[in-house]
Design a protein around this nucleic acid. Structure first.
Lengths: 342, 342
DNA sequence: CATTGACACTCGTGGACAGCGAGTGCTAAT
DNA sequence: ATTAGCACTCGCTGTCCACGAGTGTCAATG
């Protein structure tokens, strides 16, 4: 469905105005734009058509117009020009990442934190993965005569740790042997397959029991680790007038709190694109029918990728949010690739 | 300030009723309690006195009474009888802990999750500590020719990990040497002192540079690790009528999101008690003037302790929340002590 | 003298209603 | 195609009023 020049100009003006003021825009206000060079009556005709076409909505008969989800879509696809990311924001994002190199978890947490403070929207991120996480390395370290800590490093850069008590005391040498064995067994195994790993038959039974114990431990440990979701700035929701009504807010908050489902739902949005803007009803999940998500993919090395984004009302400042998210993703890519996560 | 038998009965009835219905309680309703054996006019006289004494409040002149913070305080201290924790709840809590032995973080996360689903309030917990966390052990493992992972185990049972790139390639033997050296240097050092650890002068300079690098890395890593706060069920707030107004809610959510301050504020509440109920204005922080906190201390071994609790409106079901929190803390003590965190 | 019935009073709530004003849709003129 | 003009819609605000729940008070009571 094409819009002519003037309709485009009107849509753009309405989006910009409504994003800022959060109140319906009327024909009188639009007529004050001299560039349009037409009176309000003409504009009313146009608005009426655009409403018919589905780009605008009217909260009630005698109110101005607000953009529909389709209207935002058109704006984002054809009319929007990205804001330049202010140097201060660039610095803030760089700073956050600089500060927390060395730990993936903190890196993502900090990035979310800064992103949500810059955009004033809730922000989310996932760790990098290529499908299901795969174990890259396992280390077993002794913390007491009969206690060990298993440190599992995933290809995503995530590190999981698990303590366990051993049924008897082990010497440091035995622990090293145990560690090596478990490491050999689990390398390249994806987290969901850990519980199916078979012991080599030639292993002496006494060791077999130990190994089984540790495998078990690790299996339970990694089970919850796919689909982790980082989130910050949930309180930003409360600032938005559309969420002043806590009935609107509750399903959304509840949805986000259930990290696992939220992760999977959000995962779908990106698919294989590098940047996505998902508006209102375009979102798959019921709880998100009134929010928009701006998300960008970052990559760590050549194979792995995760994503980072913000989540706000459909009346979102897309022109500002998109570059911020985009830049955050680019930085993450740089940082993680430089650190050689691959 | 003592209350006579009848005033006590009235206060108790008002608290119980108000906790359930969330609306002011009037003299007529109270008169329907036959045990009191008095008419509403008498009760009005009593209520008037109790309001004078500060145990009750009146939202407006022609409304019934609701308990003041002082009223709740009196109820909690003198009138409340704890509910018995239902067996299903016991099972749920036990289940959560059983499931996540082996990882402190998960243990606390799960406990919070269950506690908040049982009580229907937001729940919080801290990791165990004795003042400032102290490093118990450091392991350095090689993940690539020139990359290492430092795994730092704190006395609290928390595990921190940090990746770093080395300026040149190390052999496995060298890494082990490096690891041992760093471990020796940092054992028993509290997290805030890491940056002040001095290198032994006799060390060869080439190694010294490496060690410095790793120390630096660790120093940055542990810096944020005191005062971690686990939290779940924030969405439960939204269920409470007193937080329907998002203006009331916002400062609170913002406060909790700022984990560090929240941790410190909540920390003060327990001091050296094992169980505390902090009601409305009794709370030190401004954002918490309209909430109550029920928190209990748990211990891991003999020296360390942390705490766990729930946070809800002052109109909280104390009789139910207190035993749940108490039991969660006892379980945590058992689990952690058994695991020999000490 | 504590208790009580009776009564006047207070005040929030909710419905009805009117006036305002922003904004629309339509029509006839240009 | 554009526009001035006009009737119309409808949410918003304020007022008024009746209602009712609950209070405070006071004189009567045992």
């Amino acid at each position: 469905m094409q819009l002519d020049r003037r309709k485009q100009a009107l849509l753009q003006a309405i989006v910009i105005r409504y994003v800022e003021k959060a109140e319906p825009v009327g024909s009188q206000f639009l007529a004050s734009y001299e560039a349009l060079g037409v009176r309000s009556a003409t504009i009313r005709n146009e608005l009426s058509e655009m409403t018919e076409l589905g780009y605008l909505r009217q909260p009630h008969t005698s109110a101005g117009r607000i953009p529909s989800d389709l209207g935002y879509r058109y704006y984002v696809d054809h009319l929007m020009t990205w804001d330049r990311l202010p140097p201060a924001d660039v610095r803030a994002l760089r700073g956050a990442q600089k500060f927390s190199e060395g730990d993936l978890e903190q890196l993502l947490t900090q990035t979310c934190r800064v992103l949500s403070s810059l955009t004033r929207y809730t922000s989310v991120a996932t760790p990098p993965a290529a499908g299901e996480p795969v174990i890259r390395q396992v280390n077993v370290v002794q913390v007491a005569p009969n206690r060990v800590l298993a440190v599992i490093i995933l290809d995503s850069g995530q590190v999981i740790h698990r303590f366990t008590e051993l049924p008897w005391v082990l010497s440091p040498v035995e622990v090293t042997r145990l560690g090596n064995l478990v490491d050999t067994l689990l390398r390249e195994v994806s987290v969901s397959r850990v519980s199916q790993v078979a012991l080599p038959i030639e292993e002496v039974p006494v060791n077999a029991e130990l190994v089984k114990l540790v495998l078990n431990l690790i299996a339970r440990g990694v089970a919850g680790e796919d689909g982790d979701l980082f989130l910050d700035g949930a309180s930003r929701m409360l600032e938005q007038p559309e969420f002043r009504d806590s009935n609107k807010l509750e399903p959304l908050v509840r949805f986000l709190e259930e990290r696992k489902t939220a992760f999977e739902t959000l995962q779908q949005l990106l698919e294989d694109q590098n940047l996505t803007v998902s508006i209102g009803h375009e979102n798959p999940h019921e709880a998100m029918q009134e929010v928009s998500v701006v998300a960008a993919r970052y990559s760590a090395g050549t194979r792995l990728h995760g994503w980072v984004g913000v989540l706000g009302p459909t009346r979102m400042h897309y022109a500002q949010a998109v570059p911020a998210v985009q830049y955050a993703a680019r930085l993450l890519s740089e940082t993680l690739t430089r650190l050689g996560c691959e």
